[in-house]
Design a protein around this nucleic acid. Structure first.
Length: 298
DNA sequence: GAAGCGTGGTT
DNA sequence: TAACCACGCTT
């Protein structure tokens, strides 16, 4: 009984059949996690298989140009991830014999790979018993396990690691992530459908927050590991970068046409912004300036 | 219009 | 160490 068996039983019943859950290939798992880390399942699902068809291994990705990887990343957003993925592929070929290391520190040393992706690869490709902590898992920990706000990331990670049932890391982490994403959501947790909540009399339930009567404030408020609010997107540099990269995917852009490609007027202000955005793309390895005065993908 | 979100660089 | 901010696209 208890939280762990409640959650594992729920995972068994509500098994989600996502394509990347059928593979244990570390490269394929890495690609899926890099896509999923900031892009929703519905948008990743059709693109993951296409990307792997194009770049089935780290070696083939490393051999391609950055521009080809950025083009294959279209529609996923946060294009720096594509540059990081290419760099990671090169590093894996040069330093790890073209195979992803099954080691937390070595994985985290790869560009674009942080605590979440490194542990996801360990859990979902190498089937190690580590706690995978993203914002969904952090909500489940704060509400159901702690019943209170988590103070630090280290505390949340230690809690995540300590909960993993021995030799069940793969299914356990899938279950925690699914519960956070589908049921224990940020704004309106669906406790009526939660396997951890008490339903009617006679059974206690294994969620501490629910057992306490779900008092305010919600434990996720200000809790470590739980994502906060985003700054507005419309009119932001991020929006301009996205439009500029979209234009670069089609063809090189003459420097004089940068403001239009970024979606801004050719006022002095628009030109200054466009230059700044182009500079940030170059700094991120997403663009280069050619001898012909055009900005293009590397 | 707003929500969703991990990494890396900086403080 | 830990918090903060920039980074995109779809529904």
């Amino acid at each position: 009984m208890g939280l762990q068996s409640d959650l594992l039983a729920w995972a068994e019943r509500s098994r989600r059949d996502l394509p990347w859950r059928r593979t244990r290939d570390p490269w394929a798992v890495l690609v899926s996690e890099l896509m999923l880390q900031q892009t929703q399942v519905a948008r990743v699902a059709p693109r993951w298989a296409d990307f792997l068809e194009r770049f089935p291994t780290a070696s083939e990705c490393a051999a391609a140009s950055v521009g080809d990887v950025v083009r294959a990343w279209e529609g996923l957003g946060y294009n720096r991830r594509a540059v990081s993925l290419h760099r990671t592929a090169v590093t894996v070929v040069e330093r790890h014999g073209a195979r992803l290391p099954a080691d937390l520190r070595a994985l985290q040393a790869l560009p674009g790979v942080g605590p979440y992706v490194a542990r996801a690869v360990l859990a979902f490709a190498f089937e190690q018993d580590v706690g995978v902590l993203d914002t969904n898992a952090a909500r489940v920990l704060a509400r159901a396990v702690a019943g209170r706000r988590l103070g630090t990331r280290a505390e949340a990670q230690a809690m995540a690691d300590s909960l993993v049932p021995a030799s069940r890391g793969w299914v356990w982490n899938q279950a925690v992530l699914d519960l956070g994403a589908l049921v224990c959501t940020r704004r309106r947790p669906d406790c009526g459908r939660c396997p951890l909540a008490r339903h009617g009399a006679g059974r206690r339930g294994s969620c501490r927050w629910d057992a306490a009567g779900r008092p305010e404030p919600d434990p996720v408020e200000g809790s470590a590991g739980v994502a906060g609010r985003q700054t507005p997107f419309v009119g932001s540099d991020r929006q301009g970068r996205g439009r500029l990269v979209a234009a670069l995917r089609r063809s090189p852009v003459p420097v004089t046409e940068l403001p239009a490609a970024a979606g801004w007027s050719t006022t002095e202000d628009g030109q200054a912004r466009a230059r700044r955005i182009a500079g940030s793309l170059v700094a991120d390895g997403l663009a280069v300036v050619g001898a012909d005065g055009c900005l293009r993908l590397p």
